[in-house]
Nucleic acid binder design. Structure first.
Lengths: 175, 175
DNA sequence: CCTCCGGTATTCCGATTAGGAACAGTACGC
DNA sequence: GCGTACTGTTCCTAATCGGAATACCGGAGG
């Protein structure tokens, strides 16, 4: 699935000329993908790029700059087609949530109320920070129709963050 | 981290006499853990149990029933201590969300409005189904103080599901 | 001009996690 | 007895994580 996530980053970038390096791809992933998926490890990005390349879903431009040759990747027509097919096939994939705070909250009885409260406070802060980051992304997108779907995804993420804040409050009230 | 998730299942069960088999552990995980973490693969459960056993965090009872010997695992005092230490150490772990619907929504422009709508409808249904399942768990827990924290986690999950439903509606309205 | 340092770009490694298939015994209805 | 669903464990392969290692580039400052 991660390969499709990377393909989607490449397709979103595809109006630019040069394509992206693996490193840049990682940066894009850190910037947006992490909010609704995960930012893959460097190692995985390059692995996937090799795989995509072997399927001819991406093309590679070797660029010799001095002693170093860097590769820039661009999505191909075949890649675009593959992505479309993938989008079309109905899926029953359900979101996966790994929630360390919930995991620990489950054992709240082993912690004591104060520690639970402290944990919630810390999470609340981290959450607010993330929310600000996502909000910054959202504002960058504005209301341009070209990025309307990205904006919808960002809004979705904000809804999620707000729900988390609500859940924190409710939990705190119930202690 | 998964080993702590399993330990937590064992500690929750620890008022019962016999301990759990790997198989039963998998069932418990499928029943509740999956709502806020993931239900680990069978293979991983047994791997973790071996590891926990090597740390003496769990004890093993071999039980010969006919031709077959099954192992029942119980958390030890050392395991309980390890779990407490883990709970105490403040963590900056943030929830990880892998959201296939958001991933696809990002490429809504490649799908067309009808297909996006169809995707949202399917997700809405799947979501309602999960919500019912979690609600059943929540009702089982009731308001017994012994499971108050589990109930809080279940409530947290319900909040999340409701937020997802909200996000679906908002997205649909924006199309 | 040289050097240090932060950023760019890629590769490599080991560990963890995912996802099932395979295998084998058990319980129970018919 | 016989099929069949369930219980219990192991095995295998692939995907993913997480970061260290390597190396090159560019600019700031002495």
């Amino acid at each position: 699935m991660t390969s499709y996530a990377l393909l989607s980053l490449l397709v979103i970038d595809s109006d630019s000329e040069d394509g992206l390096t693996g490193y840049e791809l990682k940066q894009r992933a850190d910037f947006t993908l992490r909010f609704y998926w995960v930012s893959p490890a460097m190692s995985q990005i390059y692995t996937e790029l090799d795989r995509l390349s072997s399927h001819a879903y991406v093309s590679t431009d070797e660029e010799a700059a001095g002693k170093r040759t860097t590769r820039r990747f661009r999505i191909t027509t075949a890649g675009r087609e593959a992505l479309k097919t993938w989008l079309r096939e109905p899926t029953d994939d359900f979101p996966v949530l790994k929630h360390p705070v919930a995991l620990r909250l489950m054992l709240g009885a082993m912690m004591g109320t104060d520690e639970v409260r402290a944990m919630l406070d810390r999470y609340e802060e981290a959450l607010a920070e993330r929310r600000r980051e996502l909000e910054a992304v959202r504002e960058m997108l504005g209301d341009r129709t070209s990025v309307a779907y990205a904006a919808r995804v960002a809004d979705w993420g904000l809804t999620f963050f707000d729900a988390e804040a609500t859940a924190i409050d409710r939990t705190r009230d119930s202690l």
